[in-house]
Design a protein around this nucleic acid. Structure first.
Length: 465
RNA sequence: GGUCCCUUCGUCUAUCGGUUAGGACAGCUGGUUUUCAUCCUGCAAAGGGGGGUUCGAUUCCCCCAGGGACCGCCA
């Protein structure tokens, strides 16, 4: 058998959709698992809606999640001549014909079918008609001469055998009356010319597959293998569309979901390998197969995404985590000053403990990142005279010690608790607010140690005055 | 309406005729803890319905119900 080749073929009409990412991922993983190649085809024949910026964005998004295509991207619009050539060939060898029906005529038929509640299918009026009867004022479309008799069978690699009556598939248009090719023609010709061996795509393409198989057969081309994967549904159980929020890659990356986590989530959405939940990139290539893909659609579960992200945050190397954080902040928050690197890195071990996302880490680290403290107004009110007294005592005690560490801090705090006849909260809370602006946050000692003696002194002084 | 697909805890799923139907997330308990968390215990939670086949069905077959996709001179 020839070398496996798969492709992902998005149209650059918007940001990359999460369902598309999964389709791309499955194609990519399958080809890598089979030691084959993975290609990217940009289906930009819809001139109105296709934008170059979207193409760039799609490639960037795929790369972000770890997918890179082999070879140059294949630009569909550059191959239109080839598609037209094939249409003419089909016309010549009797597998296609010119249809002179006007748009109005077709619309009328559709309307009538709807009223009578019968399924609309083009009536094949010009299939065997004489071209001499053609109206002069109508530019014809080219229709593919679909099989009328019998049935066709698709041996789908995910769904198994699917059989359909041929007469339910109409004589679909392959060339519009302006001479441009339509999707089914273009996709088929491209897939053939690109040498695709496996087409893995969404369930919603299944009818197209039956149309495209007929083109392959009419052209005497090898028919590739097909695998139709179930769609991702919204929590309401509908097909995920671009209108649904949190459906583009960017929606996830901007809240601080890491690429590995999202990749891992998408992998396990509709695919499984025993009870294994966490897969490294290498593992996913090693274990991925088409047999593991489920047949039923799956719903997107944000809490699961968050939980996997949390797992990655807690388990990856802290240097890597820091890199992720810096990159994330640069794009979505604020640039982290490089002089904060040491402080943040050494604090990561406690900052990440309270985080499900990079955004959480950013928020937790804000007291280190920012030089100016943003006081929570309600919390700030807790700083009364008694609190100020404790803060200034703490400040003084702190200045008496050489090195800041837990062993040194603990006796100071304990002593203050006793002296002021209060509990830990009575001492810890005002100091925490003074240092971070909030009564919630990391442990007190962690805060003090991460800021360092000088900075702590500065912040305490400011609040007393 | 037609064609096709799907149906195990709330969610993602395991099970390839015999299991107390397993895991993970979410949920709820309890414990550790200086806040918030983390972490650790534990609990609860599922085979849509009806027929077959079989000694035995979640698993195989049929019917029904429910859900979904498609039905463009979009891709």
């Amino acid at each position: 058998m020839s070398k496996i080749a798969t492709r992902f073929a998005p149209s650059p009409t918007g940001a990359l959709h999460i369902g598309g990412v999964r389709t791309a991922l499955f194609n990519w993983l399958f080809s890598k698992n089979q030691k084959g190649t993975f290609h990217l085809r940009i289906e930009d024949t819809d001139k109105e809606r296709s934008k170059d910026e979207h193409k760039v964005q799609i490639i960037k998004s795929l790369k972000w999640i770890g997918i890179e295509h082999d070879g140059e991207e294949y630009i569909q619009s550059k191959k239109i001549d080839d598609h037209i050539k094939i249409a003419n060939e089909l016309l010549k060898n009797g597998n296609a014909y010119k249809c002179y029906c006007s748009t109005e005529e077709i619309e009328e038929q559709k309307k009538r079918a709807k009223q009578k509640k019968i399924p609309y299918i083009y009536n094949r009026k010009w299939r065997d008609a004489d071209e001499k009867d053609a109206p002069k004022d109508i530019k014809p479309v080219i229709r593919f001469k679909s099989k009328i008799e019998g049935s066709s069978k698709l041996n789908d690699l995910v769904q198994g055998d699917v059989e359909i009556e041929n007469n339910t598939i109409e004589d679909f248009i392959i060339l519009r009356n302006d001479g441009t090719p339509t999707y089914n023609l273009s996709a088929t010709v491209d897939d053939h010319q690109m040498g695709m061996t496996h087409i893995i795509r969404g369930d919603d393409h299944k009818i197209n597959t039956f149309k495209q198989m007929q083109i392959y057969q009419a052209m005497n081309w090898d028919v590739p293998e097909f695998a139709h994967i179930p769609l991702i549904h919204t929590i309401e159980g509908k097909k995920l569309s671009k209108r649904d929020n949190a459906s583009t890659l960017d929606d996830y990356s901007k809240v601080g979901i890491m690429a590995d986590a999202l990749r891992n989530y998408l992998l396990r959405l509709g695919w499984s390998y025993q009870d294994k939940e966490i897969f490294t990139l290498e593992e996913s290539i090693k274990y991925f197969n088409l047999e593991g893909i489920g047949k039923s659609p799956s719903k997107l579960d944000i809490s699961r995404i968050l939980s996997i992200n949390e797992h990655y945050i807690k388990s990856i190397d802290e240097n890597d985590l820091y890199k992720n954080l810096v990159e994330y902040c640069k794009i979505y928050k604020e640039k982290i000053n490089s002089n904060k690197e040491t402080k943040i890195k050494s604090s990561l071990s406690f900052l990440k403990n309270k985080a499900k996302t990079l955004e959480d880490i950013y928020n937790n680290a804000k007291f280190i990142i920012d030089d100016e403290i943003n006081y929570n107004q309600d919390d700030f009110k807790l700083i009364d005279d008694k609190a100020k007294k404790i803060i200034s005592e703490f400040k003084k005690d702190l200045s008496d010690i050489e090195k800041i560490n837990k062993a040194n801090l603990e006796p100071i705090v304990n002593n203050l608790i006793k002296k002021n006849e209060t509990n830990f909260k009575g001492v810890g809370q005002p100091i925490r607010i003074a240092l971070t602006g909030s009564k919630f946050g990391p442990g007190l000692y962690d805060i003090v140690m991460s800021l360092g003696k000088e900075e702590v002194g500065k912040r305490l002084a400011k609040i007393i005055s």
